[in-house]
Amino acid sequence: MHFSDYDTRLAGYAVIVNQDREILLSWFNGGNEPAHALWTLPGGGIEFHESIEAGTIREIKEETGFDAELVRPLTTHTFTENRSNSARRRSVSRPFKGVRVVYEAHITGGMLGTLEVDGTTDRAEWLAIDSLADVRHARIIDIGLDAWRAAV
C-alpha cells in the first residue's frame, strides 16, 4: 500500500523512572470514550512543525507539569488499524498507521500537575513499577519499560 493511501500519526513518549522505581504516568481520560480511560506514558502527537524530540518534551510538560530532558531513544513501535476520519466532511474509513518513538527521559524542573486544558489528560502521578499489573494501563507502558530494562 502506498503511503498516500493511509493516515499516519507520529507520536513521542517518555519513560521516566525515579530513584524509588516509580514511573511517571499520565491519566488518559478516554476522550470521547470514557470507558477507554487508562494510565499511559507521558507523550503524544508530534505537531507538523516540531522535531520528534521537541514535541516529546512539549507533551511531557503539558501532561505532567515537569520540564524534562531526553536521555536516549529506547524503541519504536508501530501499529495499524482502520479508523473513521471525522476530520473529513464525510466519515471515511481509511487505514491508519501509528508510529511511536519512546525515549528515556529525566526531570529537570517544574512541578507535578497537568497543564493541559480541555484535553485528554486529567492528571499525572508517580506509580510503583511493581503496581502496574494491578492498574489499567496502555500497552505502550509495557513496551517502554521492556526497552528501558534492556538498556539499563
Rank of each mutant, 00 (worst) to 15 (best):
41 L>R: 05
51 S>W: 03
59 E>L: 03
55 G>Y: 09
61 K>M: 08
72 R>Y: 06
73 P>Q: 15
56 T>E: 07
67 D>M: 10
66 F>T: 03
44 G>F: 01
66 F>P: 08
70 L>A: 13
48 F>K: 15
54 A>T: 06
67 D>S: 14
58 R>P: 03
57 I>M: 14
72 R>P: 00
50 E>D: 11
65 G>N: 07
68 A>L: 07
64 T>L: 01
50 E>V: 02
60 I>G: 02
62 E>Q: 11
50 E>M: 06
48 F>Q: 14
62 E>A: 08
61 K>Y: 12
67 D>H: 13
46 I>C: 03
60 I>E: 02
65 G>H: 05
69 E>A: 14
65 G>K: 03
53 E>W: 00
72 R>W: 03
62 E>N: 11
57 I>K: 13
46 I>E: 09
45 G>Q: 11
47 E>T: 06
52 I>W: 05
72 R>M: 11
55 G>W: 09
69 E>I: 03
49 H>F: 11
72 R>L: 09
63 E>N: 07
41 L>F: 06
47 E>L: 14
70 L>N: 13
42 P>S: 07
70 L>E: 14
66 F>Q: 05
45 G>N: 10
63 E>L: 07
43 G>H: 05
62 E>L: 11
40 T>P: 03
41 L>V: 06
64 T>F: 01
48 F>W: 13
54 A>E: 10
41 L>Q: 11
44 G>K: 00
56 T>N: 04
71 V>C: 08
41 L>I: 07
59 E>N: 12
65 G>L: 07
70 L>M: 13
68 A>T: 02
46 I>H: 07
74 L>Y: 12
68 A>V: 01
44 G>A: 09
73 P>S: 15
40 T>V: 13
